[in-house]
Design a protein around this nucleic acid. Structure first.
Length: 442
DNA sequence: CTGGGGAAGGGGCCC
DNA sequence: TGGGCCCCTTCCCCA
């Protein structure tokens, strides 16, 4: 016989113990704020803590302390509340940082919910556009009032709704714990999300750089090339308040007068005051101040926030957010399309130079430079050269040539998902395991 | 330390 | 609506 309330009751009790600091055997220092928690609860909730506490299992008699600089205390409060209650308090302001923190802490359920939250923000853009046309005489929802959603795990409530409502503007929503599994989540993109977020924010606002550097220092595990920034020391004394960190969806950057704009965190559909009565919709990013004219451009832009990289290079595995970037990368790096000698920069032809292969990288060297370097020391890619020189002969590189057919098949796979901004599921768990982050032990 | 060059990545826009 | 091209900026590596 199973008592359904037992799990939630147990969690409530643990949460109560945490609040009263009863039996708490783990301290988490986030910036200057100390959180108390139970090791076993953290162990069960986070891949990061699982590893961290496993490594410190010998010291079970002593209290364990973990330190984080990669996210703010407010963000960790959301995470910890979720761990102890199953409720995730997401808002348009905190979703990016919560997702980043969850990514760092290896809490895949939380990441999935964050992605769903972002996706639902996209979905409501269409709803809001409709609503705008039907309610254009009202400034509905333009007051910028924070709308938040509660995402609750199955511990807390049993939701039988087959399609949980996730729209961030529709008040508290409940997702059953089981239903999370239907949301695609790609661990590789999880890593990229942090990179993208860090990079994006670095570009947008230099003030945020110190936090971003800390983030990349502690959690960035790029497998492409070592990052110099990773070697920089973090300045633990520099504290950036949450308010500075937050992305302000309502910040209006467009200098032109906006006749109507939705607040909140859905992608804002804005329209100017039209002298010619021709509605010109503009799409505003919910996570930054960027405004685009087309929905497709917003969708593309949002990938720099979500870190979604649905286009993997078949040759080197590097992932790209855009197909044209992948194509460009492939042509440049793996196809040696540039008819320029890599060494002397002179123009080469098939007669005056040859394609050289180093690993997955191909480039051209003129015959002079090739002789200078020593033809024996470099593998000349005759096969590649053949089909590169005669692309019309229909021959495909059996190794990893990005043929049009393959390219298209990729697109078909990817676009099925990307239409909903869902991460394509690619198993790269091996490299994930290799890139385990060492916890910061005090 | 600095400047140049390559590669990546983001935005605009045409087809 | 997506693909793809062009342009620009940023980052990173290397001399």
């Amino acid at each position: 016989m199973e008592i359904s309330s037992h799990q939630s009751h147990l969690l409530q009790q643990l949460n109560e113990q945490r609040r009263q600091d009863v039996f708490c055997d783990c301290s988490i220092l986030v910036e200057d704020k100390v959180f108390k928690a139970h090791r076993n609860v953290l162990f069960a909730s986070s891949g990061y803590f699982k590893m961290f506490l496993s490594q410190n299992s010998k010291e079970t008699s002593q209290s364990t302390t973990a330190t984080f600089q990669a996210f703010s205390p407010d963000t960790f409060t959301v995470i910890l509340d979720f761990v102890y209650s199953g409720k995730l308090s997401l808002t348009g302001q905190n979703v990016i940082e919560v997702m980043s923190a969850a990514s760092f802490l290896q809490m895949t359920d939380v990441i999935s919910v964050c992605k769903t939250f972002i996706k639902s923000s996209l979905d409501i853009s269409e709803k809001e556009k409709d609503r705008y046309f039907s309610l254009s005489d009202k400034g509905a929802n333009s007051n910028g009032i924070e709308r938040s959603s509660f995402y609750s795990s199955g511990w807390q409530e049993e939701s039988n709704s087959p399609h949980p409502h996730l729209s961030p503007d529709q008040g508290p929503s409940i997702i059953s714990g089981k239903s999370w599994s239907k949301y695609n989540y790609h661990p590789g993109s999880q890593r990229n999300t942090q990179q993208a977020l860090a990079k994006n924010e670095q570009r947008k606002d230099p003030i945020k750089k110190s936090r971003q550097l800390r983030l990349s220092q502690t959690s960035e595990v790029s497998h492409y090339k070592p990052n110099k920034q990773n070697t920089q020391t973090s300045d633990s004394s520099s504290h950036i308040s949450q308010s500075e960190e937050q992305i302000h969806p309502n910040t209006e950057m467009d200098s032109t007068p906006i006749a109507y704009q939705y607040g909140g965190q859905g992608p804002d559909i804005t329209s100017r005051s039209f002298p010619d009565d021709l509605p010109r919709m503009r799409f505003k990013c919910p996570y930054c101040t960027h405004v685009v004219k087309r929905k497709a451009d917003l969708k593309r832009h949002l990938r720099c926030h979500t870190g979604e990289r649905p286009y993997p290079c078949q040759a080197c595995g590097k992932r790209f957010s855009r197909l044209d970037h992948l194509s460009s990368h492939f042509r440049t790096i793996h196809q040696a399309c540039k008819l320029i000698c890599r060494k002397c920069k002179r123009h080469v032809t098939d007669l005056t130079g040859q394609v050289v292969q180093e690993g997955t990288r191909r480039y051209r060297l003129c015959n002079e430079c090739l002789a200078e370097v020593g033809a024996d020391s470099l593998p000349i890619d005759l096969e590649a050269e053949q089909h590169l020189m005669s692309p019309s002969d229909g021959e495909k590189d059996s190794r990893w040539h990005l043929s049009e057919d393959e390219n298209r098949s990729y697109v078909e796979i990817v676009e099925d998902g990307s239409a909903d901004l869902v991460i394509q599921q690619v198993d790269d768990s091996e490299e994930e395991e290799e890139k385990e982050v060492k916890p910061n032990i005090r």
